[in-house]
Design a protein around this nucleic acid. Structure first.
Lengths: 336, 336
DNA sequence: GCGGGTCGATGCGCCGGACGCATCGACCCG
DNA sequence: CGGGTCGATGCGTCCGGCGCATCGACCCGC
């Protein structure tokens, strides 16, 4: 059983069938066995399930003689008798019983591999790594994930929070496929689309006199205590607010510089002052913190862009982007 | 991509290659895809790993043109481009990357299935279900398991404690392959071998006067309190002892009838009386319980047999039995 | 800029192997 | 003892996979 013994017959000098194929495709080393083929597994499984060569052959849309020969071939390749057969009955040997389970597993795996690969190629399935800024995670990203789950149930999303600068790097190295970034985003390697533009709102502690007004202007913050963004960790919002204040000749009293919006709200809650945050931050609820619109020019200054590499060939990425753009445009944003 | 589109070329009217084989061996239904073969997976894996058709072909002991064609064929079967190739470079597509992992898994599974099946057929591996009586579990069975682990590391033993009568039934229905049973065991379906014969020993509570003697005779139990076996649950020992006592005209004072040997020793420990147990029970240690040999005729009356179905064709079973018999005979028992 | 070299694709002829048909041999049953 | 069933086998056919030769695209160096 340790050698690939040819069947008796007129071809005793010839090498066994399948030998040439097998010896080529398997990197044959001296004592190695040739490998069976999936078609032979199908033959065996059908025969083992029917326990009747004629019926099994019928199921396989072939005639009985070649089926018998394929099963014999498989047995010779394995060096193992899988079926005990007489002219009256076909029974599985113990080794055959074990191999039947394996054969079914292998065939199932092959089927599902083909299916999964077709899905990936068609853009129905696959992995997408998304980078996002902290603030976009409050509202837009969850909606995106819900949308994806509904329309691309086989998409496997990976979410990584990082600032815009880190996302650019991650896009270039391929660590993420899509970035949700703050402008400006000018790079020839990237395609971009604006997916969101939102107004600013003021976060005020309970008791603040300005809560009496239905909406605020920037002038309402002049000389008032304001919790401000850190120029390093939240440069986009820092630059936006300082530009807006300068243009309106307003000088708030900056009591603190922080990076995270939820930290700002916590400080508002603690009564240190007001904060100006994107509308999406209203998803964060703190006791004793209330929100009021802030009138600015433009009226929706906070922009979020989606960016991806033009040369990213992932099929699901295109599907996903199309999905996002359709959704974003129906929600009032535009792509370019 | 939903249809099996033929390649352009002179054969535009002919059905694609592999079509006949595939349509037969897969029970082709209308819209179904033909299935790839393992040889094609090997082709793809080698090419994907080398990223060079020439080198991959060399590795597969074939020339480049048929390798190219096999990979093309695989791609057509899947309906998916796996490799982006120019005359200067070969790169995996996203779908190709995913399929490469699957292909490797399938090939590994096929290899290991072949290996495992060969091992099962050769008697090196497989499942053996062993029935055993409680007393044989104290000493003989653990040795058997240790022996099996050492010499048949791929054997998968299942152990089921049951009395001899249950084992006979389980052997007949195939629930166990081997029984460790008490005699008599006369059935034409079974082959048997005596694997153990051992003397009886007395279990005596500390302070018992008989502990002064180095070894006891049956007469030492006349009119003395003795914890006895239950005729139902432990018939073999019950019959053996009553026969021995009758033959020697001895009448102990039966203070209790129990089934399990460990229960007997617990009662000895409690001081209710002595017990007569097989030597193997000395593996059970109780405080204040000591053992002394008991002289009987024959001097090793406790016999254990191994029984299995003559028509059990499991290869590992034969290996295992040969192993057991060799071990048992070298340990002083004999087979018949 | 042009010739040589590399690489994957393709044309072509050959050969082996998988197929179907016919038949054999074993076995069961009436 | 003859008919029927079933797996194995002989045989002729045909197709598909192979190797060889070559093509076409592309890069590189002189």
């Amino acid at each position: 059983m340790n050698a690939f013994t040819p069947l008796p017959g007129k071809k005793t000098l010839a090498i066994g069938p399948n030998e040439r194929l097998a010896s080529r495709l398997q990197g044959v080393v001296d004592g190695r066995f040739p490998m069976f083929e999936l078609s032979q597994l199908r033959c065996f499984v059908a025969t083992a399930e029917e326990l009747h060569f004629g019926r099994a052959a019928q199921r396989l849309n072939m005639t009985q003689p070649p089926l018998s020969r394929q099963v014999q071939l498989l047995e010779r390749i394995l060096g193992v008798t899988l079926l005990d057969r007489t002219s009256r009955s076909v029974r599985l040997t113990p080794a055959g019983r074990a191999f039947l389970l394996e054969a079914r597993r292998i065939l199932r795996l092959a089927e599902s591999a083909a299916l999964a690969t077709r899905r990936i190629a068609s853009g129905e399935a696959g992995q997408i790594a998304i980078g996002f800024t902290a603030a976009s995670g409050y509202n837009f990203l969850p909606q995106l994930v819900i949308l994806s789950k509904a329309r691309l149930p086989n998409a496997d999303l990976t979410l990584r929070e990082m600032v815009t600068r880190e996302q650019v790097e991650a896009l270039l190295t391929g660590r993420i496929d899509i970035g949700l970034v703050r402008p400006p985003m000018e790079r020839v390697e990237f395609a971009t689309a604006r997916v969101l533009s939102e107004p600013l709102v003021a976060a005020l502690p309970t008791g603040d006199a300005r809560l009496a007004k239905a909406s605020l202007t920037l002038a309402d913050f002049d000389a008032q205590p304001l919790i401000m963004y850190s120029p390093e960790g939240a440069g986009y919002f820092y630059n936006m607010l300082t530009t807006l204040f300068d243009a309106n000749g307003v000088s708030p009293n900056y009591v603190q510089h922080v990076t995270q919006i939820h930290s700002m709200l916590a400080l508002v809650h603690a009564g240190l002052g007001a904060a100006i945050v994107p509308e999406a931050a209203m998803s964060l609820h703190f006791d004793d913190v209330q929100f009021r619109p802030v009138e600015t020019t433009p009226d929706r200054p906070v922009e979020l862009y989606m960016a991806w590499r033009k040369d990213n060939e992932s099929p699901i990425l295109q599907t996903f982007i199309d999905l996002c753009l359709a959704e974003a445009s129906s929600a009032g944003s535009d792509a370019r």
